[in-house]
Write a protein that binds this DNA or RNA. Structure first.
Lengths: 142, 142
DNA sequence: CATAATCCTGAGTGATTTGGTCAGAATTAA
DNA sequence: TTAATTCTGACCAAATCACTCAGGATTATG
């Protein structure tokens, strides 16, 4: 039940971009330096984030990255799913719409639990936006 | 954000024991056969479950395993934590009581999100007992 | 135009984790 | 005494992870 380092880095890097919102593109090298993350590793992560439409890139000199939407409209869940793919606590939930659980004749009893778990995880992650993270004066997220 | 096969197997095996509750010890070999799980792998998992006090064992001929408590008093969360250890979405939460998050001067902004996530995951898993799983006549868990 | 700064991409790599297997000891009912 | 069982530690192959490496594409600036 762990998130990868990719996700942790991704969220932190996006938070940096949120702080910098509306100040023009920020070079990835700068973000990596600030957060002490491997630049080349971050490149891969940002590739996913960009493909997911969460950020835009400007190439060439004076280029960099910008959030594709205002910080309030980017949820932590968006970042997690962009970087790690959909939340699937057990493989059973990955593909099959509702089939494939053929253990025990009564059907896959445990499936309901994993579905609930998946839904709750997505809920929690979608309750918090980048704005919530950067606007730290408000203290608690609640 | 995945659970291991160990957890999936553990929960299914415990559900089998819940079905069999109060019918004397059930040999592990039988459980493994029913659920099509590697017997030797299940042995390791049951070792953890037993050490966690979730089940009792009877050695020798006609031995086997029994739930240490009634199905209603064993939560899926108990099984998950016994088999996988405590839920820690990011390593940041593993040890340090509240320290160690020294990225960015404002402190670890993202930490709150991961703490919430961890708490919610534990909540969901603790809402469902083995009795809920086996008492499938009631349909939905809610 | 040349250069340097930046994004972009695919391949490779060493360490760790995962999902098992193997071998054998300890216990106990029949 | 035997066979059924739990228990334990060592081992192993394959997958995953957290990167690194190498190099191409794009573009502002001098």
């Amino acid at each position: 039940m762990k998130l990868s380092a990719r996700v942790e880095y991704g969220v932190r890097a996006m938070a940096v971009l949120a702080f910098h919102y509306q100040n023009g593109p920020l070079p990835l090298r700068e973000i990596a330096r600030q957060e002490e993350i491997s630049f080349q590793f971050l490149e891969q992560i940002f590739s996913d984030l960009r493909r997911a439409g969460l950020l835009e890139s400007v190439r060439g000199v004076r280029g960099g990255y910008l959030l594709a939407r205002p910080p309030a409209e980017i949820k932590v869940g968006d970042i997690v799913r962009a970087v790690e793919g959909p939340i699937t606590p057990v493989d059973c939930l990955a593909d099959s719409p509702s089939s494939e659980c053929r253990h025990r004749k009564e059907g896959c009893l445990t499936r309901q639990v994993w579905e609930r778990l998946r839904d709750r995880i997505n809920e929690v992650l979608d309750e918090v936006s980048l704005a919530d993270l950067t606007d730290f004066k408000t203290g608690s997220i609640d």
